[in-house]
Amino acid sequence: MDFLTYSFSTDDIWWLETFIDDWFLVIALSLFVIELIRYGLKKTFTRNLLGDSITNFITLGTFVLIVALVAATYAGVFFYVYDNFKLVELPLTPWTILCCIVLADLAYYWEHRFLHKNGFAWATHTVHHSSPHFNISVAYRHGPLDWLFPLFFHLPLAILGFNPFIIFLAEVVVQVYQTLLHTETVKKLPRPIEAIFNTPSHHRVHHATNKQYLDKNYAGIFIVWDRMFGTFAKEDVKVKYGIYPAVKSINPVTVFFSGYVKLVRQMWHAPNWRYRWNLLIKPPLWAWQQENKNK
């Protein structure tokens, strides 16, 4: 077990993170090709699916450009907090990395739950959910502010003494794991795995518009968080993907800004400032209920 306390340098951690980031995209693209072949064999390949997938990768490109602009500030905030407010300085060891991945996964759970329960945050996350399809390209369907919210939920890890390089690595590990879940190719995994880990089956439920599946399965790696906090649902009926009302467009610009365009429209037509404030902070379900009341 000595290897768990071997010391890494920050350069080693950075190298590992970059290695995972770069090579995983290659693996994900290969898996996507396999999924396309599967769609072809099942004769479910459509022009809409192709257009939707291309749109997903265009939103990824736009998201990467935005991240390139804000990356230094994002990292700077972590280093500032770590240098000035850390309670301890945890060593750069595999053991620290494992602990950080578990805590980053818990942070992801709460961030993800917040994205679904706050109108302003949902406006960016709705882009990811707006695809009527479910394949690995959907994992790359990003909204314009997807980079912002992880900051607030992962920053406490820097205060706990996790080096920012380890936090970034843990964020990448959780994201990479999450990406792999976006598939219909894998049905159900063995029961012990389904009990502990998030799986494609659990994540299909998360992307569903079926009433019994709404706001369920927020987990990143460990589904135990949903089981513990009462947000778990098992996949037992066929999943209908997307959001309600549907975006019904494969135009990348329309898709990328759909959430905020809708939010701005709702705020423009809002009856008063209290209603506008509620649109920003209350769950999207609240806005939908208000609109239905007024009909």
Partner: peptide, 16 residues
């Protein structure tokens, strides 16, 4: 419960 989990995992990290 999340607070308890955070303190426990942090404690495990500090055991080093």
């Amino acid at each position: 419960i999340s607070g308890v989990v955070v303190v426990s995992i942090w404690g495990l990290a500090m055991m080093q």
